[in-house]
Design a protein around this nucleic acid. Structure first.
Lengths: 125, 125
DNA sequence: CGGCATCCAGCCGGATACTG
DNA sequence: CAGTATCCGGCTGGATGCCG
């Protein structure tokens, strides 16, 4: 779950790598984004909001985010169980960056895709 | 190299996922960052500037970035071969975002690491 | 010098099934 | 409901070696 330290090297000196590693997580950013839009979200809600994620992976993603202190988890002692997730303060500070990222992506995606096609084409010929 | 389309789902509708996928690439962001600091860089220079990357992986990373149109590659017809990489205009627009990301990381890393330790500790107990 | 080919290990995440 | 357990395929990236 928590990746194990990533052996030595620049990595230890460079905090970025650690963060980026999180973002490498296929669903982490999306989960943060979704949480940023909903205040408090139950596990099953997240499952519905992100249809393609399996419960196992969602669970793992949330646990990582929680471990990092980006997400907090609240359990209610009721039956059936109820658990709510929400962004922490720190988690919320990350949101604007992710949004910018998505905006950049939306702005440039067409060009990128086009360029990629071109590139592959040349590669073939 | 170019990951193959990622099967259907939100993914296709959501450009973000594509971009994030790139950033998931272990070295992509760092390469962009390094390129942003050096204008034109030769392959071997990059190898030195990022000691932990293997030539094979660096090559792949650069090719992906090139395919996306974030990096341009110039070959000089000389012996021994000389190849220079540099950011494209679009690539440069990405740099500020990466920088912000790194700044966020630097700002929050201590807290994150601490939180992670705590979390693991509880988990054990 | 600037790669690509090959090989190979580890991790990531998907599917499925099962619990308190 | 909210996960965990298990199994497993695929991709990523590291090491090494060769080639124009």
């Amino acid at each position: 779950m928590l990746r194990k330290e990533e052996r030595n090297s620049i990595i230890e000196i460079c905090p970025v790598r650690n963060v980026i590693a999180r973002f490498g997580n296929k669903w982490a950013l999306l989960v943060v984004l979704v949480l940023s839009e909903h205040e408090k979200v139950r596990f099953s809600e997240l499952c519905r909001l992100i249809p393609d994620i399996s419960s196992r992976v969602l669970s793992g993603t949330l646990k990582t985010l929680e471990a990092d202190g980006l997400v907090s988890r609240t359990t209610y002692p009721v039956v059936p169980p109820k658990v709510e997730y929400q962004l922490t303060e720190m988690g919320r500070t990350l949101v604007p960056l992710i949004v910018q990222l998505t905006e950049w992506a939306q702005t440039n995606m067409k060009k990128i895709v086009a360029h990629r096609k071109e590139f592959e084409a040349e590669d073939e010929g």
